[in-house]
Design a protein around this nucleic acid. Sequence first.
DNA 1: CGCCCACTATACAGATCGGTATACCCTGGA
DNA 2: TCCAGGGTATACCGATCTGTATAGTGGGCG
Lengths: 219, 219
Amino acid sequence: MRTTPTPVQPTPAAPAAPAPAPPAVDPDRADLTPAARRVLETASRLFYERGIHAVGVDLIAADAGVTKKTLYDRFGSKERIVVDYLATRDARWRAFLAAHHDPAALSPVDRVLAVFDASREWMAAHSGKGCSMVNAHAEISDPAHPAYAVITGQKQWMLELFTRLAENVSPDAARELGRSLMLLHEGALVTDGLDVLPDAFGRARRLAAFLLSTARQAR
Amino acid sequence: MRTTPTPVQPTPAAPAAPAPAPPAVDPDRADLTPAARRVLETASRLFYERGIHAVGVDLIAADAGVTKKTLYDRFGSKERIVVDYLATRDARWRAFLAAHHDPAALSPVDRVLAVFDASREWMAAHSGKGCSMVNAHAEISDPAHPAYAVITGQKQWMLELFTRLAENVSPDAARELGRSLMLLHEGALVTDGLDVLPDAFGRARRLAAFLLSTARQAR
DNA sequence: CGCCCACTATACAGATCGGTATACCCTGGA
DNA sequence: TCCAGGGTATACCGATCTGTATAGTGGGCG
């Protein structure tokens, strides 16, 4: 449905884009004990590098220099560690984005492109097997799994971010533009992770700039 | 490196795009015994729905109505089933694409857009948790794993396909266009799987058409 | 002092992992 | 008639999985 090119479709009732919810957890996880932080850091690295199901709690505990007793005292279950892994990574990404994002100094278009620059830097630093949310989604089949909400929430937040930023470029086409920017960004994430294209984020950035340049005037 | 917008960069030595290699396996797997086919079909469904590491051979054998003896007589190892899963799915996708693709009747641009149409149909039929290759890549850490070659080979094949199709639209910019089309296609694949956008392939198709329309004249 | 908290160390339970072994059944063709 | 191949059924192997149990250590604090 709605494959026809419905040109604009203004936001029906809500006057502005919804303010994105703040991350549910502290990016630094200062709420955790030192051993618990070591567990989460170790588990996050292993989950991302090898996959969630391929990593057992024994390995996590051993690599973190912690006994399984401590691990289960702090987290209660592996499932909980998985959720914390995704939620913390999400919180850190949002903090990283906020730090690489000077809203006052940039034009509306540059504010969009800054997201792609931040992603490129993020992926270069956390070098990569692609998006941890997408990868986790591939391993979690049950939608009732508590990690599912984190995954979909992260993607929804990104979509709302792009839509909100697009409103400053072209208010009428913000929803459509936001979705297209989201598609470009996800495409860069996955192609970067698969190492199939050189400089995927640079390419996505150029395509986004191209898209925005046409959206500002016509469309 | 090379983040500067190097405009065109013509193919250095090779006169034309490389002819894509044919799939290594028969899409129908007529080479397998009936029980082996049941094993592969069952394993493929479970691997895709639940993830590779989350599915054991006992479950595969039970769901296929086959004993583990038969399973190991036919395949020898779980790893081999995984490789066959990915290779067969790849072969079927290429056959599906060839069937939904009348090269004589379509214009160069339409031939590109037909790929996005085929992907939309494919994903609607094999409804979705995204790209099986990307999902498998998330679970396989060792690049020496035999499935790795299947995954990268499939993505490389798609990139070459887009590049080859782009040559008929704009020979000078074929390489660049092919990469951008690849990025759009991967973006649609992942956003479709995550259910974050409505009609991701329709959107990618529109963006591709937009990109091609500008590439045919200028750029 | 006494108590709690974070942590270590070791052992084990119950289930499932990939993979193997023995033994038997059924059908088609030489 | 014989026999090989594809298949069934069941039991088992060692390893690993998530999760729990018992016992003990050291430091901060009221």
